[in-house]
């Protein structure tokens, strides 16, 4: 691992600012896309095309009364909303945005990602418990169970990509996808990973944690004002992070499809043009995945708790292990005989 240099801090600052802003953009995008899906107009009053709507939302949240349940645990109730936000922000450290544009090249980047991503559930579980409400408790418990069940298939799907890269560093992982993206060589792993990412981000069809219909908001029923705002922010940051991870692991990161074959046509590495191209390719893919997140949310019903468990443990986990073993076997054959 190399020590961070000045440019790393610059990239860190830019990417953190970007991530925080992206939540606002996501809120706006979600509301407009939802409106489009539902034959509505959507927010169009605040600013040009309603683009300032997220700002108005935040201002509204700040001015709301901050209520803490009397019989709840006040400390945990206050700490809980911070955890998902912080873990989402931590994730960005190892994601490469372009050729040489990364904050830190961690040689255990994948492990770091999996570890940090699973920390986020503590916030939700603590929120559910600290609220002293039965509905919130259910939300929190569901969140814990869901996170446990989907960590495993997600880890196995990532492991199958590690086989191709031969490294736990995300930079290496992206560079191995220069010729063929992960989705082409490992489609089953891609599907498993996307499903698990949806589950980790607690988005429909895996939003049992919130379950607006039966649990009426689940873990954040008792939250108001900016504490609720933090959960809201974290949800959208997790969507963005999830999309970035899908992009990094399976959609070739900042590489254009099959870029290795026509690399001589692209700008040279290390130039501004190349950096801009890389960042735009990366953001384009991320934006597409965010759109998929939103699209799915507004069209598909939600799973039931037992269906969620059986999908995670009985279907995805065996499938992901089988996928891993088969890929490992094929790679071994290729390396040995070719």
């Amino acid at each position: 691992m190399e020590y961070p240099i000045v440019s790393s801090y610059l990239i860190l600052a830019v990417s953190l600012a970007f991530l925080l802003q992206s939540a606002a953009v996501c809120v706006y995008a979600e509301r407009r896309i939802a409106a489009f899906i539902q034959y509505r107009v959507g927010p169009n009053r605040v600013g040009p095309f309603g683009a300032l709507q997220p700002l108005a939302d935040v201002i509204k949240l700040i001015f709301k009364e901050d209520v803490t349940p009397i019989y709840g645990n006040k400390t945990l109730h206050t700490v809980a909303p911070l955890i998902p936000v912080v873990t989402a922000l931590l994730t960005i450290a190892v994601i490469p945005f372009g050729d040489g544009l990364f904050i830190v090249d961690l040689n255990v980047g994948v492990l770091y990602l999996l570890a940090v991503a699973s920390l986020g559930v503590y916030g939700v579980t603590m929120a559910g418990w600290a609220s002293n409400s039965k509905y919130s408790l259910f939300g929190g418990l569901r969140a814990a169970a869901q996170m446990l069940s989907y960590e495993l298939p997600m880890g196995m799907a990532v492991a199958s990509m590690v086989l191709f890269a031969g490294s736990l560093s995300l930079i290496d992982m992206v560079n191995t996808q220069m010729y063929w993206w992960g989705v082409f060589v490992n489609p089953i792993g891609f599907i498993i990973f996307v499903v698990a990412t949806f589950a980790e981000a607690n988005r429909t069809p895996f939003d049992l944690v919130e379950a607006e219909q039966e649990l009426v908001g689940g873990f954040h029923t008792e939250y108001s004002s900016m504490k609720f705002g933090m959960f809201f922010l974290a949800e959208y940051m997790h969507v963005v992070i999830g999309s970035m991870l899908i992009t990094t692991f399976f959609l070739g990161g900042y590489h254009l499809p099959f870029a290795g074959y026509y690399a001589h046509l692209l700008p040279e590495a290390g130039t501004w043009a190349k950096a801009l191209l890389d960042i735009h390719v990366f953001l384009g893919k991320t934006a597409f995945m965010v759109f998929v997140f939103i699209w799915v949310r507004w069209t598909i019903p939600r799973f039931k708790y037992n269906q969620l468990m059986s999908l995670g443990w009985a279907k995805l986990l065996p499938l992901s292990i089988a996928n891993f073993v088969i890929i490992a076997f094929i790679l071994m054959v290729i390396h040995t005989y070719m």
């Binding site: 429909t204 939003d207 507004w298 939600r302």
Partner: peptide, 16 residues
Amino acid sequence: MVMDTGAISFFIWTFK
């Protein structure tokens, strides 16, 4: 009913 299963948009489609 479809909204109760979690698909919110349906409610608005039927309301159209």
